[in-house]
Design a protein around this nucleic acid. Sequence first.
DNA 1: CTTATATATTCCATTATAGGAATATATAAG
DNA 2: CTTATATATTCCTATAATGGAATATATAAG
Lengths: 88, 88
Amino acid sequence: MARTKTTHDVFSAIGEPKRRVLIEQLVLKEMTVGELVDAVHWPQPVVSKHLKVLRQVNIVREKRQGRHRYYRIQPEELRPIQDWMHQF
Amino acid sequence: MARTKTTHDVFSAIGEPKRRVLIEQLVLKEMTVGELVDAVHWPQPVVSKHLKVLRQVNIVREKRQGRHRYYRIQPEELRPIQDWMHQF
DNA sequence: CTTATATATTCCATTATAGGAATATATAAG
DNA sequence: CTTATATATTCCTATAATGGAATATATAAG
């Protein structure tokens, strides 16, 4: 039985607690990586890596501006979860 | 930085696709392990192990009856997810 | 007691994941 | 061009998670 990768869909993406924290920040306003680092106090690579996962599943979108990258939530991408939750 | 275990909260529990399938079955009606195995066609230990995770986070509850064990959903345990989704 | 059935558990190997440290890349500033 | 700043990436290690196979456990049936 083939193993199922677990950081490549929306459900597992939000399964990681740190990623939920990042999302909670970004829901408030779009932020740069540095601002996120300041907010959560984790090493920058940790933040960047989790952002990468969120990017891959399109939960966040990146806007480059100079040497900064603003990240913002794409709330519609969370729709599959909302839909799935409706069964309850 | 301590690693966060990922099968011990509701969010990560539903991050696993097979567990979502089991939940989708159990939402329809309570079922025994054998009925679940018939429904999904996975090896019995695979089903039992995923049920164990779901039990640990209280998403399902077990009712023993003779040599059968009926599993049923505890929908209220999914509340944290509903609540978390409200921010969008 | 013996056997059959239902389910859980243990042991194992493979793969995935997270995070640390160091480094690379890109862009801005001087 | 050089340096500083912002961010991503790579390499590495430890640990976690999944699934298979075999086995254990519990209960029912004969």
